[in-house]
Structures are given as structure tokens and as C-alpha cells.
Design a protein around this nucleic acid. Structure first.
Lengths: 229, 229
DNA sequence: AGTTGACTAGTACAATGTACCATAGGACTA
DNA sequence: TAGTCCTATGGTACATTGTACTAGTCAACT
């Protein structure tokens, strides 16, 4: 947090006093810079690659300085996750497409964002909902509402779709392995193939059509959830 | 692994020489005991509660002794996860219910196992597939095959269903918080409610019917994936 | 009696998150 | 001008972790 003792308040983006301390070295620390660098690190080094020390190094600052802007490492994860899920608010006008296109658009965008940063998929299950996530949920809720889904059924619909996105993203991210791992998995499976004949036959782990599965499943869900097409 | 230098082999369960070292103190270490204790620890202390030292303490052994049976901590996670997903093979005879009941049964059992050990849900995305997971997938694949799903569509069907289970389990596990967190979440959301009116209205985060959502979504998926009822 | 191989465990180390403390400079007040 | 306070930085130090290295014990076999 900004201000150790202030408990919960982050610095208002309203005005920026900007002391401009450093003559010409590094720009001063800021939440944005910290989060952006954390995302960089996560993208390049993976989830275990993010350490406070490395983060500080990249920022050209001391480790403990980070803790002025951030509560702890968990906080960094939360912020990085939400950052990655930023979304462009739909340009209010235009897009009078059907509700269904709208919903599909929201969900596919969501999935795409997460696939762009594979660590986010395995992180999200443990983290709280940030504003951007909530924003996306709100968008989805709206689309469904417009589609005539009754308020009573709204939660079921939202969660089913959310689950589909989460599940397919996580699954895909965790199976998109390095070639080494891929080979190892194939190896291991081959050894046991007599016990899993059906899986073996369909080559489930090897050449699945992730995007196709996502789209198809999504269609079925939408068909069921809001029958009016 | 059993045998530091032997590389990859675990001790055959074939014969058990059982030196019966300890007179009457602790039973000797074994993979089974280690894994069972790890599960215990995970159940009671959560995912961060499992440390090699704590594990050794509970087992009444030295820390490094664990490493004779296990490669590293990751290995422990893998084994614990697979252990938790053990399943009773369906009693071959009997159960000539329809394929649909069969599929539903497999999937609900799966979900139930994971909900019984909430840490498993957040662990699975990062871990490899153990034999028990594969076994369950095989079961599912069989049911769908019997239902007349073409081989070409099998992967799509399996993944869609798997995604549904994973997603709904993970979502539920991560929202089943302590009352404190629950209150905090409500607090936070209330503060932002004007920005998320639809979500607020449906009380999405507060009183969702997880089981209902799971069942309903599952039905829609099955309807779509294997139209023959 | 000697050797081997399965197994146990202490010591030690490097990496990590972060509490605590000292500091510096600008802004504001007296 | 001097004093005080708030924002912000970062060094030092420590507890906790996973695990490499090493030495040991005991049973079985030669």
C-alpha cells in the first residue's frame, strides 16, 4: 500500500507531485512501473521467476522500496493478474450485434487475454477478483440480461460460462508444454497405453483442437442457457 | 525416487522385505505413508502448510530421509494429487444404466473428490496427469464412445466436459472462503457496486447455487455433445 | 569376515519474503 | 530561518524454506 501506516489507501492518481528525484537515472518507483515490470518478469520467467529481489533489480531500486508501494508479494500477484485482464471498454455506440455475438466476444477476448499470459491461468484460482475481472463479468451479465435470461437464472448462466472459460484456458495452458515435456508425456502414456485404450486411440493428449473445443462447448452452453436465438 | 541413483524406479509393491526396524516406535517410512501424511497436512493446513520439515516431523523421521523415497517437493504434490483422485473402479457388472447416467456419475464423482480436498483444485492446473486422472478420463471416454460419439468428436467432447468440471470446481473452491474473507469481499464489492450494477443485483458473489450451476451446465453440454438421449 | 545395497539422518548452504531501522528531501508551519 | 512532518528509499538482519553432501546403520549375501 502507499503509506505504510495509512492501511489501505493507494496514492490518488489525481495529482502527481512528482519530486523527480533521480537526476537522469531511473524514473521514480510507482505502482504502475512495478506492476508492469512484474508482468514482464512473469511473461519471461514464469511464475517462479518473480521474486522481489529480481523485481527490484529490474527496476533499479532497493528491494525494500517496493514495500512502500505494495503490501507484499501476494499483492504483486493480484495486481499483475488484474493488469493482464485489462480490457477496452466496448465503444458504447456501434456493435448493435446480437446479444449472442456480444457474449461470445466478451468470452473469447477474455480467453485470449489469459492465453497471452499463461501464468495468469494458474494464478487466478487462488486470487481475489480485481476490478477488471469484475468489469468483464458485468459485461457478460449485461449481455445475458439483454438476451432475456431471467434474473433468477443469471447466476447459473454466468458461472457456467465463466467455468467454461476458466476450465478451457487452464487446461490448454497446462498442456501447452515445451517439446521436451510433450515428448515425455507421450512416452509415459505409451507405456501405459494398454490401460487407457480409448484415450490412446483418440490421441487425446497429443493433437487436440483446443480452440474448436472451446467454441463448440460454448455454443452448446449458450444454446441451453438462452434458447432464444 | 526409491534409490537415489537408480534414477526412475519406485520400489515394486511385489514383495515387501520389511526389515521392521523400529522396535515399537514408528513404522518405517514408505511412499504410502509419506503421501498419506502429505494429504493430511494439505487438508488441515492448506497448500502452504506442506513443508518438507513439517512432513518429516509428522512422520517422526528426519527431513532428508524423505528424499530417499521422493525426488523433491513437486513429486510430493503430484503424488498427493493423484492419491486424492483415486477412484473405485466401477463394478463391471451391474450399472447397465444409460451412458448418460454413467457419464454424469463419473463427472460428479470427480468433482466431489476434488471438493473434498480443495487444495487439489488449485494444484491440478500446474501438475502432470497421474494414473488416476487418466483412469477417470478413460472411463469418461468409454461412456461417450458408447453413447455414439464419433471418434472424431471424442476429443472435443472430453475436453468440454473436463473443462466444465475443472472450471466449476476451481471456481467454487476459490469462492468458498472463510467468513472473514467473505465479509471483506462483500465490503469491497459494495464500495464499487455502482460500477457493477448487474452483478450486484444478482448477488453473484454471495449466494450462488454452485451445485445447481454445475448440473445445469453439464446437462446443456451433454445435450449438445451427444444429442441422442 | 567382508561387501553391498537399502535406507536414515545431521549439517550446511543458498534463496527467499519481509520486519525493523536509518535516512533524505520537500512542504508546510512558527 | 529553524523546526517538524510526510513521502519515499534502501540497507541490514533474520527466520523459513528446499535440498546437496556426507556419514552412518543394519540386513542379506558372498
Amino acid at each position: 500500500m502507499a503509506g505504510k501506516r495509512s492501511g489501505k489507501k493507494r496514492p490518488q492518481p489525481g495529482k502527481s507531485p512528482r519530486p523527480t528525484r533521480e537526476p537522469r537515472g531511473e524514473p521514480p518507483l510507482s505502482l504502475e512501473r512495478i506492476v508492469a515490470t512484474a508482468v514482464e518478469l512473469l511473461d519471461t520467467q514464469g511464475i517462479d521467476g518473480l521474486t522481489m529481489r529480481r523485481l527490484a533489480d529490474r527496476l533499479g531500486s532497493g528491494v525494500m522500496s517496493l514495500y512502500w508501494h505494495v503490501d507484499n508479494k501476494e499483492d504483486v500477484f493480484d495486481l499483475a493478474l488484474d493488469k493482464v485482464l485489462e480490457y477496452r471498454a466496448p465503444s458504447d455506440r456501434a456493435e448493435p450485434q446480437g446479444w449472442r455475438q456480444e457474449a461470445v466476444h466478451v468470452l473469447e477476448g477474455w480467453r485470449a487475454s489469459m492465453l497471452r499470459h499463461p501464468w495468469s491461468a494458474s494464478l487466478l484460482p487462488r486470487r481475489a477478483l480485481g476490478p477488471n475481472i469484475l468489469g468483464r463479468l458485468e459485461l457478460l451479465a449485461n449481455a445475458l440480461s439483454k438476451a432475456g435470461v431471467a434474473d433468477a437464472d443469471l447466476n447459473v448462466a454466468i458461472w457456467s460460462l465463466w467455468n467454461h472459460v476458466m476450465g478451457s484456458t487452464i487446461t490448454r495452458a497446462s498442456f501447452e508444454l515445451t517439446d521436451d515435456d510433450q515428448a515425455a508425456a507421450q512416452q509415459r502414456l505409451a507405456g501405459l497405453s494398454e490401460r487407457y485404450p480409448t484415450i490412446e486411440r483418440s490421441r487425446l493428449l497429443l493433437d487436440s483442437d483446443w480452440d474448436g473445443a472451446f467454441r463448440k462447448g460454448l455454443d452448446y452452453l449458450l444454446d441451453g442457457l438462452a434458447p432464444i436465438r
